[in-house]
C-alpha cells in the first residue's frame, strides 16, 4: 500500500490546516464572551473553546465528523433529522436527472454527428445554455413547472438534467467522431450504410469517451439536484439541509450536509468507474 502514504500525508496536512483555521476564526467569539464576562482566558482555553462551540464560524473536523455520524446513524432513516433520508431524496432526483440528461446528451450528439444542420446549430446553444448561472434558471424552472402542476422530484430532476447533458454531448460528439478516415473507408468498401456504421463502428468507438463524460455529468447532476432544492424552500434533501442550516446558523449542520453531498458524489463517480472498467474489459479495450 505504497500509494496510501502520500494520500494520508496530504489528508493530515489538510486536517492540520483546518484545525489551525478553526482556532483562528473561532477565537474572536471566545474573546468577546470572555470580555463580556470580565475574565481573562489563556491560549489553551481559547483553543479548547474554539473546538467546542455550538455555532462556530468554522466547525472543527471532529465536530463535522460527529455531525455527519449522528446524521447518518443517530436517527431512523425515515426521520427528517436523518442525513440518510435527505441524501436519498437528493439522490433520487439526481439519478432521474442523470438518466434524462445522459439520454438527451447522447441523442443530441447522434444528431450533431449525422445531421449537418444540427452540427452547425445545436452546439452553440448547448454551450450558451451552460453559461447561464444555474442559480438564476433553477427558480424559474421550479415556478414554471409548479404552475402546470408538476412539483416534487421532477422539477429538480430537470435542473439536474440541464447540468448533466452538456458533458455527455461534448464527449459523445468527440467519441462518435473518433473513428478515422481509414476505418470509415473500410466500411465503405463493404457498402455499409449509416446504420451499420453507427452500431458497429461509431458507437463502440465512443464508449471510452462516454464514460469519461458520465463521470463529470453524474457529479453535475448532484449539484443540479441540490441547487434545485434551494429556491423552492424544499423541506427535504441535502439542499434543504444546507438552507435550513444557514437560516439558523447551524454551521455544523451545513458542513455535515456538504460532506454528505461530497461523499455521495464520490460514490456515484466510483460506481461509474466500476461499470466503465467492467464494460471496457468485456469489450477487450482494457489490457
Amino acid at each position: 500500500m505504497k500509494s496510501l502514504l502520500p494520500i494520508l500525508t496530504v489528508l493530515a496536512a489538510i486536517v492540520a490546516l483546518w484545525y489551525a483555521g478553526t482556532v483562528w476564526l473561532n477565537a474572536q467569539w471566545t474573546h468577546d464572551q470572555a470580555a463580556r464576562a470580565g475574565v481573562e482566558v489563556t491560549f489553551a482555553e481559547v483553543v479548547a473553546d474554539a473546538m467546542a462551540q455550538e455555532r462556530p464560524v468554522l466547525p472543527a473536523p471532529h465536530q463535522v465528523a460527529r455531525g455527519l455520524w449522528d446524521g447518518v446513524t443517530g436517527h431512523k432513516v425515515t426521520s427528517k433529522r436523518s442525513l440518510v433520508y435527505h441524501a436519498q431524496v437528493t439522490l433520487s432526483a439526481t439519478l432521474v436527472g442523470f438518466v434524462i440528461g445522459t439520454l438527451a446528451g447522447i441523442l443530441l450528439a447522434v444528431g450533431i454527428v449525422h445531421n449537418r444542420a444540427m452540427d452547425l446549430s445545436v452546439m452553440p446553444w448547448a454551450i450558451a445554455s451552460q453559461t447561464i448561472p444555474i442559480l438564476a434558471i433553477a427558480p424559474m424552472v421550479i415556478v414554471v413547472l409548479a404552475s402546470v402542476g408538476v412539483t416534487g422530484l421532477l422539477p429538480k430532476a430537470v435542473i439536474s438534467a440541464y447540468l448533466s447533458f452538456f458533458p455527455v454531448v461534448v464527449g459523445m460528439v468527440k467519441g462518435l467522431r473518433a473513428p478515422d478516415h481509414m476505418q470509415l473507408d473500410l466500411l465503405r468498401t463493404y457498402n455499409a450504410g449509416r446504420w451499420d456504421t453507427f452500431w458497429k463502428l461509431r458507437l463502440p468507438a465512443s464508449m471510452p469517451y462516454l464514460f469519461a463524460s458520465l463521470k463529470v455529468s453524474v457529479a453535475a447532476s448532484l449539484v443540479g439536484a441540490i441547487v434545485g432544492e434551494l429556491p423552492a424552500g424544499a423541506s427535504a434533501g441535502l439542499g434543504a439541509r444546507l438552507l435550513s442550516g444557514s437560516y439558523y446558523g447551524q454551521t455544523i449542520q451545513i458542513w455535515a450536509a456538504l460532506f454528505a453531498a461530497a461523499i455521495l458524489a464520490a460514490g456515484l463517480v466510483m460506481i461509474i468507474g466500476v461499470i466503465e472498467r467492467g464494460t471496457l474489459r468485456r469489450m477487450g479495450m482494457v489490457r
Binding site: 451499420d196 463502428l201 463502440p204 479495450m285
Partner: peptide
C-alpha cells in the same frame, strides 16, 4: 489498408465477421 485497422473491441474472429455481418 496500410494499417490493419482492426477494431480493438472485437476479437480477431469478430473482426473477420464484420464484413460478413454487414453483408
Amino acid at each position: 489498408f496500410q494499417a490493419a485497422g482492426l477494431y480493438p473491441w472485437r476479437t480477431i474472429a469478430g473482426n473477420i465477421k464484420l464484413p460478413l455481418e454487414i453483408m
